Computed example of a mutant assay.
Amino acid sequence: MNYSSLQSLFYQLKNNRAFELFVIFIIIISALEIGAKTYDLPVQAIAFTKMLDLFITLFFLVEIVIRFVAEPNKRHFFKSGWNVFDTLVVVISLIPIDDSEMALLARLVRVFRVLRMISVIPELRILINSLIKALPQLGYVMLLMFIIFYIYAAVGSFLFQT
Rank of each mutant, 00 (worst) to 15 (best):
N2R: 09
S4H: 11
Q7M: 09
F10Y: 10
F10C: 11
Y11Q: 10
L13M: 10
K14E: 06
N15P: 06
N15W: 03
V23Y: 05
F25I: 12
I28Q: 03
E33H: 09
K37F: 08
T38C: 06
T38Q: 13
Y39W: 06
Q44F: 07
A47N: 14
F48C: 01
T49E: 01
L54M: 14
I56K: 00
I56H: 03
I56M: 02
T57K: 13
E63Y: 14
V65W: 07
I66H: 01
F68V: 01
F68W: 04
P72E: 07
S80D: 09
G81H: 02
G81P: 02
W82L: 05
N83I: 02
T87P: 03
V89C: 09
V89M: 04
I92Y: 08
S93D: 08
I95D: 04
S100H: 11
M102L: 15
L104R: 15
L105D: 14
R107D: 15
V109Q: 04
V109G: 05
L115P: 01
I118E: 09
S119Q: 03
I126E: 11
I128W: 06
L131M: 12
I132C: 02
K133D: 12
K133S: 12
L138M: 13
G139F: 07
G139T: 05
Y140G: 15
M142D: 03
F146V: 06
F146N: 04
I151T: 08
V155S: 04
F158Q: 07
F158A: 10
L159Q: 08
F160Y: 10
F160R: 06
F160K: 04
F160I: 05
